[in-house]
Simulated scan of single mutants.
Amino acid sequence: MMRWTFLGVFTLVCVFFLSNVGSLFVSAMPDQIRVTIGPSTSMEKMAAKLPGSQVVNEKAGILSVPYGKVEAFIGTANTISGVFRVNSVPLDHPVISWKYYGFMVKEQMAGFLHGDFGHFRSPFNKKQIPVTQELPNMILRTCTYFIPGLLLAILLSVFMSLAASYWRGLGKVIDGIHVLLVGLPDFFLIILIQLGAIYVTKFVGHYVMLVVQVGNRTPFLIPFLTIALIPTVTIYGTMRIAIMRELGQDYVTTALAKGLTRREVLCKHVLRNIVEDLLTVLPKATTLALASMAVAEAVCGIFGLGGFIISPIVQSVSSMSLICMMLALIAMIFHLLYALLRKRFVVHTREVF
């Protein structure tokens, strides 16, 4: 338990630092903003209304602000009367700044310690919303199709591997489809599913399935099929090899010689002996399902955990870290579940000297 706890904490810490790697690459001045003002005000008045700022170049409308506070000062300056536009001051070319990365990490850690887990701008009403307020809804929305899709992938892959081993002709067809799907990227498969939904809708002449999120209406079938399809390909390959290995064992030959049918051998003996192989591949399949979920949510515009990370409309640095750690935590919960199942159902043997 100590080892698993240490590994979980270490993983979350690594995810936290990696989720902030975007702060390492700086393309704008971290301590300056450019303000376009009207004739009714001046740069000196602007600096007076923004405590901590100073005029750097009055003609160009550039103000200096505390290091790393550009976004906060831009938001405040936009609310001042007489201001037309406020933006950051771009650099000639992006640079790698460990100073800015360290500053942002310290700011986030300080915020986390004080209960501030970040805000994001809602894509619906453009308001700033605390991440913790919307997080339960995002988790529920994602799990609505993630858990059923993963369960379908497990059941479908086990069934197809058994069917392919029982009917050799069908096995050749399924193996050929498996080879084809292994070579296709996830994004391409999702686009094919979306195109299929669009063409079916046009052919039938009325609405069939939702392709992108519209308000509170969330697509189900496309992310569900995506999550089910990609892990199925991985699990099927492992289960097919495991069944072929077991069919070559002596106990199978003995069972067939005693009069048991091939179906009885597969269902009563082989299936029981490949449980360990299934539980071994499930952690990898779950990780693939999470990655497929993120891609599907991004393509379908779904405001879930994966869509939150990828969509530039709702991103903010601190909330990005929290969502990434939440995805890692979900993956670790499934890994822990698989470890408990291995301990419960897999019999381990060893030599005693």
Rank of each mutant, 00 (worst) to 15 (best):
M1T: 11
T5A: 15
V13C: 00
V15F: 05
L18Y: 10
V21S: 08
G22T: 14
V26K: 12
A28W: 04
M29T: 13
V35E: 03
I37Q: 01
M43Y: 00
A47E: 05
P51G: 11
S53M: 11
Q54N: 10
A60Q: 14
I62R: 00
L63W: 04
P66W: 01
P66K: 02
N78E: 13
F84K: 14
R85T: 15
V86M: 05
S88C: 02
V89P: 02
V89D: 09
H93C: 00
I96M: 14
S97A: 09
S97V: 15
K99F: 07
K99S: 13
Y100S: 09
Y101P: 06
Y101W: 15
G102Y: 09
K106P: 01
E107R: 09
Q108L: 00
Q108K: 07
G111F: 11
F112V: 13
N125L: 07
P130E: 14
P130M: 08
V131Y: 12
V131K: 10
Q133Y: 12
L135M: 12
L156Y: 06
S157M: 07
S157R: 06
V158L: 14
S161H: 07
L162I: 01
L162D: 01
S165M: 04
R168C: 01
L170T: 06
G171K: 04
D175L: 08
G176W: 08
V182C: 10
L192K: 03
I193M: 13
I193W: 06
I193L: 15
L195Y: 12
L195K: 03
V208K: 06
M209W: 03
M209R: 01
V212F: 11
V212L: 11
G215N: 01
G215K: 05
F220S: 01
P223M: 02
I227M: 04
I230E: 07
T232Y: 01
T232L: 04
I235F: 01
Y236Q: 12
G237H: 13
M239Y: 09
A242H: 01
M244S: 11
M244Q: 15
R245D: 15
D250Q: 10
Y251W: 11
A255Q: 12
R263Q: 10
L266P: 03
V270S: 05
I274P: 08
V275L: 11
E276Y: 05
K284T: 10
A285Y: 00
T286V: 04
T286R: 00
L288T: 04
A289M: 02
L290V: 07
A296Y: 08
A296F: 00
E297D: 11
V299E: 09
V299M: 14
C300P: 04
I302N: 02
F303H: 12
L305P: 08
G307Q: 14
F308L: 09
F308W: 08
S311N: 15
S311G: 01
I313M: 08
V317F: 10
V317Y: 13
S319P: 04
S321V: 15
S321H: 05
L322E: 02
I323T: 13
A328V: 10
I330Y: 02
A331Q: 13
A331Y: 07
I333R: 03
H335C: 09
A339F: 05
A339M: 13
A339I: 03
L341H: 02
K343V: 10
R344V: 10
T349P: 00
V352S: 09
F353L: 12
